[in-house]
């Protein structure tokens, strides 16, 4: 325990040594990048060498999380959090305040920010006012007034979602379930031909449609909350959860390759862009 606390206050010698080694390794990398650079001037080579080395350092720092938490991960994490928060704030300011509000609010501001003025609209001032009201949260006494803009956003989207999701998620999904349970019956001989799963033989197609319908119904039964899942109902619900699990597994397996290719991308960056040994 004592050593643990000691570690917290000042890094142990081992940590210091690791820090120094890492610093030296990356310094060497920077120098070698700068001396082998292809840019026009030495300054450009030094700069580009630094940038690529720093990116590699951040990459390895994040990978180090796989081992455990450590100062390198903390460094990359905290830097990234600060930088990205500012990134989205600036982007929001330029695209929404300058891009959306200013062109409808003021000619002078439009000229100042070099955006084409469109037309005055008091609607935008109302939005701005709601935004300012939101900032009242920071005042201890007037915090409650900040619920107005909140109400605007939540009320609007609740109404928006209600009819649209009823249409897209609910009705169209129900509508698509009306598949023919016997695909164009053309006699038994034809029905039992072409039995491969990939082919669109009649039996396979019809069986598929049956499974979809039964699956949808059992899945819906699983989502019944106000009825006990017992007897027939329970059996249907269990079949429903089985079909859900098959689907989840498929979705899991399907995603694996995509994620591996992301990893390959990072490894390529390290070995090719940074170390140039691929």
């Amino acid at each position: 325990m004592a050593t643990g606390n000691g570690n917290r206050k000042s890094p142990s010698n081992a940590v210091k040594i690791i820090l120094v080694i890492v610093a030296v390794v990356f310094l060497i990398s920077w120098i070698s990048k700068a001396t082998t650079g292809m840019a026009d001037s030495t300054w450009l080579n030094i700069r580009d060498g630094f940038l690529i080395t720093f990116a590699a350092f951040l990459t390895l720092s994040i990978f180090s999380f796989l081992y455990n938490d450590n100062p390198f991960y903390k460094f990359a994490e905290h830097l990234y959090v600060g930088v990205s928060a500012a990134y989205w704030m600036c982007l929001g300011f330029w695209s929404i305040i300058v891009g959306n509000f200013v062109p409808h609010a003021s000619k002078t501001l439009s000229t100042f920010f070099k955006v084409p003025f469109q037309e005055y609209s008091w609607f935008y001032y109302v939005a701005f006012a709601f935004g300012v009201i939101l900032l009242m949260r920071l005042l201890p006494k007037a915090g409650w007034i900040a619920r107005w803009p909140l109400a605007v956003i939540i009320g609007t989207t609740a109404g928006f979602n209600l009819s649209r999701y009823l249409h897209s998620d609910f009705m169209s999904q129900v509508g698509n379930t009306f598949q023919p349970l016997f695909v164009d019956w053309q006699g038994a001989g034809h029905f039992f031909s072409n039995l491969s799963l990939a082919a669109d033989g009649q039996l396979v197609m019809s069986a598929g449609n049956w499974i979809v319908v039964v699956g949808v119904l059992c899945g819906l039964v699983y989502f019944f909350f106000s009825k006990e899942h017992k007897g027939m109902f329970g059996a249907a619900s269990r079949l429903g959860i089985w079909i859900l699990m098959i689907t989840f597994g498929a979705s899991f397996g399907y995603t694996v390759m995509g994620r591996i290719s992301l990893l390959v991308g990072r490894i390529t960056f390290l070995f090719d862009d940074w170390l140039s040994i691929l």
Binding site: A76, Y80, V81, V83, S84, A85, Y87, W88
Partner: peptide
């Protein structure tokens, strides 16, 4: 932060 992976980090 409002950046997906920075938030995750």
């Amino acid at each position: 932060t409002s950046s997906q992976f920075a938030y995750v980090a």
